[in-house]
Amino acid sequence: MSHDNLKVFPSVRERYDALAQAGDIEIDPAQQRLADRFDRLIHELGTTRLATKSSALGWLFSRRAPRREIIKGLYIHGEVGRGKTMLMDMFHQLVPAKRKRRAHFLDFMADVHERINAHRQALKNGETKQDDPIPPVADALAEQAWVLCFDEFTVTDIADAMILSRLFRALFQRGVVLVATSNVEPDNLYRDGLNRQLFLPFVDLLKSHVDVVNLDARTDYRLEKLNRLPVYLSPLNEDTDRLMNEAWLAATAGATVAPDSLKVKGHTVIIPQAAPHTAAARFTFADLCSKPLGAADYAAVIQHYRTIFIDAVPVLDHPRRNEAKRFIILIDMLYDHHVHLVISAAASPDELYVAKSGTEAFEFDRTASRLFEMQSEEYLATASRLEPAAAAQAAKL
């Protein structure tokens, strides 16, 4: 038993079945098959660990342990909300590796670039004679994690694309085992990207070190659950707060929630509540519209988060036209990129802006119309995480 009196399940399948039995998830045969595949990988990792023990205290997970065979990891792709991240997180929690890391792929690559830049600075300062930063960076990453789990594996940046083949060849040579989730199959990574022919060796390398699995679950379970709840709540009262909190719990699906921040053109955009694993973020109206934010800031949020909560939108008038203007821009961008919006407001959309003069009064008619449409079944059916190409485009706005 764990310290919180919850049973510790020894396998991904047992943990999955327990959640289904408790009514927290619905049983899906495709998810069950993936759970079994994760358990086989855990067994392979454990078997290799035992086979390479050098002493009673020796682990394969020790950096000095020899690698006797290549263990193929997993690359799981499929549409949004099918349970890829949930199952990978179960695997990460259960795999008995002391050196393991779970990261969003974009965060990992940001870390890699920082390490490369630090090495180049050390070379410039005469602190190292190693011209090539890839081997020492790979050494440090492999020492940190033998089992490496990535969520949202996607490649949209040419700088990432150009180093992936060399970096991962070095990591695989050091025995790193990769597990990744993605919305696209490996052959479609960096599709239509600049100089993609230079990226293709990485695709071949990747497929030789992972088993590719298509999680063809029947529906977007997270969105299905969220769609049962209201997405525009008014007026502002305790019942509205309660329903917003229920919807937030559904959107985050038990994921860790913590503040986040994004660097945008030299300044920082704060996300008060963020669940990167489910691409959900929560703000107040003041967080987004009372601060001097603009389209580039909203685009950065959209690039990382596909379900946006906005609490406590007030009734706006002419003295608050700057906030109204930002709100207009924000809703336009959320609408254009099919972001799933959950909002609490003091009034219905057509009663949120009460001034009768000024350009904001005219423009807010479109905002109200879009807020109504964003509650429709048709809009909610299309709301999903941003595809890589759209993410790249949003980042350029």
Rank of each mutant, 00 (worst) to 15 (best):
Y353F: 05
V184Y: 09
A324Q: 02
L200S: 08
L167D: 10
D216V: 06
F285H: 07
S54M: 05
L41G: 01
R320I: 05
L215Y: 00
T47Q: 06
I27A: 03
A286V: 11
E114H: 15
H119R: 04
R67S: 08
L330S: 14
R320Q: 11
E152I: 03
E114V: 15
I270P: 05
I25C: 01
A383G: 09
Q93R: 14
N322Q: 13
A324P: 05
R242H: 13
D365S: 15
L397D: 09
L316I: 00
P96A: 10
E387G: 07
L316E: 03
E373N: 08
W59R: 10
K291T: 12
Q273N: 11
L226T: 02
D287H: 08
W59V: 01
S11F: 00
M244T: 09
P319Q: 07
Y75R: 00
G294R: 03
E373A: 06
F327N: 02
A347R: 12
D350F: 03
G126A: 12
R191G: 04
M88R: 12
K265F: 08
L194S: 00
F362K: 12
T156A: 11
Q303H: 12
N245P: 03
D89Q: 15
F91S: 09
Y353D: 00
N237C: 13
A253V: 04
R196F: 05
V231M: 10
V231W: 07
E387N: 11
A392E: 13
L229P: 08
R68C: 03
D336A: 14
G23K: 02
V80T: 14
A251H: 03
I343N: 10
L167W: 03
K291N: 11
G83F: 00
K291Q: 09
L243E: 12
A145V: 01
D336H: 06
P10A: 03
A22F: 01
R63Q: 04
Q393W: 13
P10M: 01
L198D: 14
E152W: 10
T367W: 13
F327H: 02
I116M: 14
Q93G: 13
Q197M: 07
D36A: 04
L371M: 09
S344D: 01
D317P: 02
L223V: 07
G78M: 01
A281C: 05
S376A: 02
A97I: 04
F199G: 01
I70K: 13
A118G: 05
A346G: 07
L236R: 08
V112L: 01
L334P: 14
L352C: 10
R115E: 15
R63P: 02
L148D: 01
S261Q: 11
L6W: 10
A97L: 14
G78Q: 06
I158K: 11
I308V: 15
D131V: 15
L229K: 06
